[in-house]
């Protein structure tokens, strides 16, 4: 029988949640016995090759590309999980949610005290994804099935959640594994 597939993505995140996944240490060998990785930075597969059982999303949506990737994950994954605080509530990037976008870009590229930018322009190349007006938590963009909070979620949280899902059991996390920091 074919192994179920997992896909992962880092949107507006720092890759810390992916690091936490690697932090399951030698259990990663067991994980590889249980699943194949599809589109993911872990194996550098860029496009979906088929239907996936689980999609792990790190980071919220800060630009149009994040939204596109997230919608693609929803289309290809049976179960979509928001992993980490950025995916769940915007996280650190959401600190800009109270600041108008123009003000944000002006300070970052023109008026900031350490900025060196002789052109005096805000980058607007069509290759650069357009920023959204604010950070959107993933569940405000697509339907999310499970949430694993933490910054990052502990490796044990990810391991327990994944093994529960793969064996068809509900995710039942003990007190020590629910953390917001």
């Amino acid at each position: 029988m074919q192994k179920p597939k997992i896909a992962t993505a880092s949107l507006a995140g720092c890759f810390g949640c992916h690091m936490s996944l690697l932090d399951i240490d030698d259990r990663i060998l067991k994980l590889i016995d249980l699943v194949d990785f599809d589109k993911s930075p872990v194996d550098d597969i860029k496009e979906f090759t088929g239907r996936c059982l689980v999609g792990l999303i790190e980071g919220g949506c800060c630009n149009e590309e994040n939204v596109r990737v997230l919608q693609e994950f929803r289309k290809h994954c049976d179960i979509l999980i928001s992993v980490g605080d950025c995916a769940i509530d915007g996280g650190l990037p959401a600190l800009r949610n109270g600041i108008p976008l123009k003000e944000c870009l002006t300070e970052a590229y023109i008026t900031g005290p350490t900025v060196y930018n002789p052109s005096g322009k805000i980058p607007s190349d069509s290759e650069i994804p357009l920023l959204l007006d604010r950070i959107y938590p993933c569940h405000e963009v697509v339907k999310i099935d499970y949430y694993l909070p933490g910054c990052p979620p502990p490796a044990d949280t990810l391991w327990q959640a994944l093994t529960a899902l793969l064996s068809g059991k509900p995710i039942d996390l003990p007190y020590e594994l629910i953390k917001y920091d």
Partner: peptide, 15 residues
């Protein structure tokens, strides 16, 4: 929130 087992709030964030 930990004690009540909340994984994510279900209401929209107001920021």
């Amino acid at each position: 929130a930990y004690r009540l087992g909340i994984l994510a709030p279900k209401f929209p964030y107001m920021f």
